[in-house]
Design a protein around this nucleic acid. Structure first.
Length: 558
DNA sequence: ATCGGGGGCCAC
DNA sequence: AAACGTGGCCCCCGAT
């Protein structure tokens, strides 16, 4: 059952569902003074009847947070903007406007308005308790409720006409479910102990300095680096460092760590230590803590579909680059546990599933795929791993090149699969994930200039991109299917001691925060969801997708 | 002062 | 070992 919903001023809104006596294909329009209450009522009714509602909304990231503030959760939605972006991408028009207003305009042959700029909440400030004013780009006089229903019908029709409508429908559903999960994660937040974070910083950097000053340990290292190089310098400046090393008789081509590591000079170990600590201080130091952690929670601002491959991005806070040393600060509340799940060796397993390579699929039936590959590489697991990753990433240099022929010989269909994707890219063609997410068109050539060809270098880069895209994008959607199943499973657990929460998601990792009594049930939910994800995506396949699940109090223990 | 490219490093 | 994909973010530094 679908219900289209739009928010209006002061917490009100309108719904258009099937449950009424009024005319029209989808029944009545109902005006609600309290939209959150009306949504909650429908969700309860749907649960009682066993006929879940799919909410048709223009933009989940805009619609859902105010509901969450009111304690209202919804099970399923169809996010018009996200699905429009997927459909546009599939049609070779990646990145074009995809908000409701744009979709409606295209449907009616009108001029397509650019998407509204996102207001992006900065920092961990209080969330908006009210629905924001209408940012729709629909023309005046067009009822957004009508537009939602029309565009939804149109999207369903366009999906039905695709070569693999079932797969794409699954993609649309899990992308939308991901948008719900992202809003819920932002709402609930990762439990984050500011005192532990501060202790880590103090232990590594010394006491917190006044704003704008270097922490003591960094200041000391900078001074000693200067002494070792015989001149005062700023270690943050690659140009100054290059000049200093040159003057000291050790010219370097760059100041990257791995380059410096090969230089024998007393300044090098100091500098390597400095770089490591400076990064911690600038990216996740005290000012990060002040900005992003409040009330014992870190709230990541996820952007669903923010990466071309379908991986999520984040806006501010660097949630997808939390350094490992800080995982000590992620601690479950008293009486609660973290349930951490990590899909091991996800991308090679995806390659096995999508390529239909029987030898690789057989290897992917075990918990350690790389170990099963080792036999083809003289028993060397590490070499097998390098060879497989090189095939997926298009690596041509280093050790990997020598291993590729062996890889091709042992797993021909798998290598063919990614080689074919690379060739498509080199020729300027599009490639798609298993469920139908489509890569952006190349920057060269295009409608304006059909004669323009890529340079050789650009073509090779494009080939590496499309080679990896078919794997990374499919891995991302596997993770989304998993997440949707986990969300469903968690909603079915007993919430009387507190609602189990999904609090962190990072490409192939999921962290739950649950009452201790529910930890085992949550772990079982995760494992069941992994099996479900594999079956939903690939049907009957020998490839396994083992999920490493750990119940811990601290993320660093996972 | 502000912008933006590049260098560098973190995560997967 | 160091030319291998997707990102975010901070710093420097030259251009405006």
């Amino acid at each position: 059952m679908r219900i289209a919903a739009v928010a209006e001023a002061e917490g009100g809104g309108r719904l258009r569902g099937p449950d009424a006596q009024a005319p029209g294909p989808d029944g009545a329009v109902r005006r609600a003074d309290d939209l959150a209450a009306a949504v909650a009522e429908h969700e309860r009714g749907a649960a009682d009847r066993g006929t879940p509602v799919r909410w048709i909304v223009a933009d989940t990231a805009h619609f859902y947070p105010p509901l969450l503030e009111r304690g209202v959760r919804i099970a399923r939605c169809h996010d018009i903007a996200l699905v429009e972006a997927l459909l546009q991408g599939h049609a070779g028009r990646f990145g074009e406007a995809h908000a409701l207003g744009a979709a409606w305009a295209r449907l009616h042959g009108r001029e397509v308005p650019p998407d509204p700029a996102r207001s992006g909440a900065e920092g961990a400030g209080p969330q908006t308790a009210l629905f924001e004013p209408d940012r729709s780009t629909l023309p005046p006089g067009v009822d957004p409720l009508d537009a939602l229903v029309q565009v939804h019908d149109d999207q369903r029709r366009r999906i039905a006409e695709l070569p693999r409508p079932g797969r794409f429908a699954l993609l649309a559903a899990v992308e939308s479910a991901g948008a719900l999960a992202a809003a819920e994660m932002a709402h609930d937040g990762v439990p984050w102990r500011a005192d532990v974070h501060d202790a880590v910083l103090t232990e590594q950097l010394g006491p917190r300095p006044p704003a704008g000053r270097r922490p003591p340990v960094l200041a000391d290292l900078a001074a000693r680096i200067g002494e070792a190089l015989g001149r005062s310098l700023n270690p943050d400046s690659p140009a100054q460092l290059m000049r200093a090393f040159e003057a000291a008789g050790h010219p370097v081509a760059s100041t990257r760590s791995w380059v410096l590591r090969r230089v024998e000079h007393p300044a090098v170990p100091l500098l390597l230590r400095y770089k490591e600590l400076a990064r911690l201080h600038s990216a996740h130091g005290w000012s990060w803590l002040d900005t992003w952690v409040s009330g014992g929670r870190f709230r990541a601002d996820y952007i669903v579909g923010g990466v071309v491959s379908g991986r999520w991005a984040t806006r501010g806070g660097g949630a997808l680059q939390i350094p490992k040393v800080l995982r000590r600060a992620v601690v479950a509340d008293p009486g609660w546990r973290l349930v951490c799940a990590d899909a091991g060796q996800l991308e090679p397993r995806i390659l096995a599933a999508v390529s239909g390579d029987s030898a690789l699929a057989a290897a992917a039936g075990s918990d350690d795929l790389y170990a099963r590959l080792a036999g083809s590489f003289g028993g060397d697991r590490q070499r097998a791993k390098i060879a497989l990753l090189a095939a997926m990433y298009g690596q041509t240099g280093g050790d990997a090149a020598a291993l590729l022929p062996r890889m091709r010989q042992a797993y021909p269909r798998a290598v063919d699969h990614v080689d074919a994707a690379a060739r498509e890219g080199e020729h300027g063609h599009l490639v798609r994930s298993w469920l139908g997410r489509t890569c952006p068109p190349p920057m060269w050539g295009g409608a304006d200039d059909p004669e323009a060809g890529p340079g050789e270098r650009a073509a090779r880069e494009r080939g590496r991109f499309t080679r990896n895209f078919v794997i990374q994008a499919t891995a991302s959607e596997w993770a989304l299917v998993l997440m949707a199943a986990v969300r469903r499973g968690l909603a079915g657990l007993d919430a009387s001691r507190g609602r189990p929460q999904m609090v962190f998601f990072q490409h192939d990792e999921l962290v739950l925060h649950v009452p201790a009594e529910l930890a085992e049930a949550a772990a079982a939910t995760l494992r069941a969801a992994a099996d479900e994800a594999a079956a939903q995506m690939f049907g009957d396949t020998p490839v396994r997708f083992p999920l490493d699940v750990a119940v811990v109090e601290r993320y660093s223990q996972a």
